[in-house]
Design a protein around this nucleic acid. Structure first.
Length: 217
DNA sequence: ATGTTGATCTTCT
DNA sequence: GAAGATCAACATC
């Protein structure tokens, strides 16, 4: 019945799961296209106690997926145009989750290129950044609350899968999260994890305040 | 190579 | 009403 092995590593809280996601394979079968990506950079979000988490202020309609069972996909819409995707983990209700930030294409490169709009930049940048990665995988709000299946083979099962989770990376680095403003940013929350030497890992930037709009004179 | 700005809209205060 | 787990284009060096 409720054997813990069935949930497996996804039952770990985000700070423990995050390193396992490095080097793991994410597979999507969306729109009849299979894409497999090897993750190189992730960020952990630690639920209600984490000022950087969407769950910090409690459960809302938007972040409800964070409070779901491990293996839930939490996809959100931001900046009026981008989607970002998390793997919900830990015990149900704790809102522990890992944001997928960057990766490299393992399979389905043509599909990824088309979805990304055939960008002109270097190949390493193709899936460098959470919105780029989600776009390449074909993830949108339609996939919010979907479930990640264990394993690489996707069709004809669920749309999303996670493989190679059990393989711990030989070495990885950790540091402050990118783009997180306020108390959740900075050295006190070294919740960003990446594989050293991977060209797809996005450079660190502080969360810069935007220019004030609608300035009157 | 690094810094600044516009795009675009949902969500919460 | 303002900010946001961002990106791409443009300016300047």
């Amino acid at each position: 019945m409720n054997s813990p092995d069935r949930v497996g590593l996804l039952g770990l809280p985000s700070l423990e799961l995050a390193p396992h996601l490095l080097g793991a394979h994410v597979s999507t079968f969306i729109g009849g296209r299979l894409v497999v990506v090897r993750l190189t950079e992730v960020e952990a979000y630690d639920g209600h106690q984490d000022p950087g988490s969407h769950a910090y202020r409690g459960k809302t309609a938007r972040n409800a997926g964070l409070f779901g069972p491990p293996g839930t996909a939490y996809v959100y819409f931001t900046y009026g145009m981008h989607f970002c995707a998390n793997v919900v983990c830990g015990q149900e209700g704790t809102a522990s989750a890992v944001l997928m930030r960057a990766g490299e294409v393992v399979s389905g490169r043509d599909t990824v290129l088309a979805r990304r709009g055939n960008p002109k930049g270097p190949e390493a940048q193709l899936l460098s950044g959470p919105a780029r990665l989600a776009q390449g995988l074909g993830l949108t709000l339609e996939h919010n609350l979907a479930r990640f299946r264990d394993g690489t083979a996707v069709p004809p099962g669920p749309d999303l899968a996670l493989g190679n989770l059990a393989i711990a990376p030989a070495g990885y680095l950790a540091g402050p999260r990118t783009g997180v403003a306020g108390d959740g940013g900075g050295e006190e929350y070294p919740y960003r994890f990446w594989l050293p030497g991977e060209p797809s890992v996005s450079p660190y930037r502080k969360a810069a305040p935007r220019k004030v709009r609608g300035g009157r004179d």
